[in-house]
Simulated assay, not measured.
Amino acid sequence: MTRFNDLFDRWAEDYDRTVAGLHPEYREVFAGYRAILEKVVQELGLSPGAKVLEIGVGTGNLSQLLLAAGLDVVGVEPSTQMRQGALAKLPDLALYEGHFLQLPSTIGLVDGVVSTYAFHHLLDQEKRQALTLLHRSVKPGGRLVFADTVFKNEDIRGQMRQEAKDKGFLQLANDLEREYYPLLEPLQQMFADTGWKAQFQQLNRYVWLMRADKQSS
């Protein structure tokens, strides 16, 4: 799970400019970025004081909105440089080194889990393991809300990859080839198999919202 740490350590300084749409190759990936983060908080649907685990905090943009909503936020982030960026914005954030498969034991049970632009860094088997682990980490009736790149099918994934190449967006095309972006139907089955009742909504050409409620074992 730390396989992309070097990349994110290098990206940390420019990350906020990228999500703001200033990198032409990733403009569509991050289209409506602020609204996507707000949608995650809205769909979480928790009252002030509820405890939320955020995985892949990055530079703390979602964390800011969660804290503004009065939530008790605990974050994990594997990249040292990203953690430093987040703490520069939010020095009081409870932030730990960790990732989807490595959660600090001190966190305990939480009311909800959120993550944006991070779940695709897991291999499919790791995604399944993470969903199983998070199901155990959330209180009964708890909710998980992710926003990340998902493709409806393999044809669309191939079309988007070719489109990036045709535009000369070679960095984006490389990302689409090397990272582990899931397909919608297998992802839906993965959530169901691990005890989640999930709904999926497309938010831009790349990003889908995944809202999942914990089901009884």
Rank of each mutant, 00 (worst) to 15 (best):
T80F: 09
A212L: 06
D111F: 11
R211H: 11
L67A: 11
D166V: 10
R10L: 13
W196D: 00
Q215S: 14
F100M: 08
D92T: 14
N153W: 03
Q125G: 10
V110T: 08
Q129W: 12
K167T: 04
G58L: 09
G32S: 06
E185L: 09
N174E: 10
L170F: 12
D148F: 01
Q129R: 14
F30S: 05
D124H: 12
A31W: 07
Y117C: 15
L66T: 01
L144E: 02
S105P: 08
E97Y: 04
A35T: 11
A130N: 01
A68K: 12
E185T: 09
Y26N: 09
N5S: 15
R143T: 15
F169N: 06
D72P: 09
H135D: 00
F151G: 02
M160A: 07
E185C: 03
S217G: 14
Q171N: 10
G85K: 06
D175L: 07
L209Y: 01
Y206L: 01
F30P: 02
R3D: 15
Y96I: 07
A118E: 03
L46R: 11
L187C: 05
P140H: 10
Y26L: 15
R3H: 15
F200I: 03
R3F: 15
R10Q: 13
E13S: 14
A69E: 10
V76M: 10
Q202T: 07
G98T: 06
D148N: 01
T59E: 01
S217A: 15
V74E: 11
H23Q: 14
Y26C: 07
L203W: 04
V73A: 05
A118C: 14
R128V: 12
E38I: 08
W11I: 09
Q81P: 07
T80W: 05
E43A: 14
F146D: 09
A20I: 09
A68Y: 04
E38D: 14
L66V: 01
L170H: 09
Y15T: 06
L133Y: 11
K165R: 13
L7Q: 08
I36T: 11
H135Q: 00
V29Q: 13
